[in-house]
């Protein structure tokens, strides 16, 4: 018997179509990208959307090192916005020391995935973040 062994943390993280990448809903009229559903494009009111792969590398446009958060959230962590070839993505910046010395706006980053653990059915959730790119 085989069952699905992996599930992405969010539906817009594609794991089964080549290397892991993010997928956006793209407005067919103006090209605006959304990570969840829209009835109409917020920019041009178009109602047709298609799936579009988002670049897996980008530039860190801004960040904060969050030191105080809800119980259960591991701190400190780095929250940021990555410009992936024109599509802005909110994500954690991972695989880096969460210190101002190690992180700066403008740095090159790339998509990275990690295991979030296995549930009682044996399914492993896969999370994503962006890590410094060489």
């Amino acid at each position: 018997m085989t069952t699905a062994t992996q599930i992405p943390f969010v539906h817009y993280l594609a794991l089964d179509d080549g290397p892991p990448h993010l997928v956006a809903h793209e407005c067919t009229s103006c090209g605006a990208h959304y990570f969840d559903r829209r009835n109409a494009c917020a920019g041009c009111f178009g109602t047709e959307f298609r799936s579009a792969d988002v670049a897996t590398t980008g530039e860190l446009r801004t960040f904060s090192i969050v030191a105080f958060a809800a119980p259960g959230v591991e701190v400190p962590f780095v929250a940021g916005v990555v410009d992936c070839d024109g599509t802005s993505v909110m994500a954690n910046i991972i695989n880096v020391d969460p210190t101002p010395e190690k992180i700066h706006t403008g740095m090159s980053v790339r998509l990275a995935t990690y295991s979030m653990g296995v549930d009682s059915d044996g399914v492993e959730a896969i999370g994503f973040g962006f890590e410094p790119a060489p």
């Binding site: 969010v10 817009y12 904060s64 105080f68 958060a69 591991e74 962590f77 954690n92």
Partner: peptide, 26 residues
């Protein structure tokens, strides 16, 4: 987002100090 767990802290931050920190840093 079809998330299989809480998002805050895993896909950026929902906290206001963190959001406005990013606004200033940008």
């Amino acid at each position: 987002y079809g998330a299989v767990g809480p998002i805050d802290g895993r896909v950026g931050t929902a906290t206001m100090p963190g959001v406005f920190a990013q606004i200033g840093m940008e």
